[in-house]
Design a protein around this nucleic acid. Sequence first.
DNA 1: TGCCAGGCCCTCTTTAGGGCCTT
Length: 207
Amino acid sequence: MGNYPVVVLDFETTGLSPDQGDRVIEVGAVLIENNRITDRFQSLMNPGMRINSFIENYTGITNDMLKDAPPVPEVMKEFASFLGDHHLVAHNASFDQRFLDAELRRVRRRRVRDFACSMLISRRVYPEAPNHRLESLVLHKKIKSTGAFHRALADAEMTGHLWVSMIRDLKETYRIRNVPFHLMLRLSKVARKGVPNFLEKFALEEG
DNA sequence: TGCCAGGCCCTCTTTAGGGCCTT
């Protein structure tokens, strides 16, 4: 199964830390239901400050593109509606979670669901991967690339495909019929050496 | 003035250091 919906999201930002004044400049997200993308959300946002040349080069998003973009609060209110009360997923979720929580706080909203981290889970499901950057995992799993890396919607879509791929591989490898969200959350915290035992035990209890 | 992210996770560890990930 794994039929519960999740929203997979990705932010492009002015830097690494909302605590140091960094803001979001683009959000991309996909809704996944029944292992397929059924809805999408994407918007650039004007952060009210200039972005540096590293960010322009890294993302391909320029100051010129942000000049006429809607302000961050306006987009974040819309995005909060898109999120609803769905479970959330991101690649290196602690990063996106910090920015999401900070920007929602500014518009007096709050996150209501847990975040699962596709990077932490991929380290456990695909320990053989050369590394666990999104770009490398997309190559490793032969996931079709849906646009330029480091743009929010393309990264969210590819992370979404990675999420579906990990659920499928868990089912096949461990003969788990149903991979609920809470299993993915728990898996992301299991010591790596203990992963096979953890999953075999789950499969037994399920059966 | 000078500082400058944070959390996971391995190891030559736990009285710590440094690579990996995200922009």
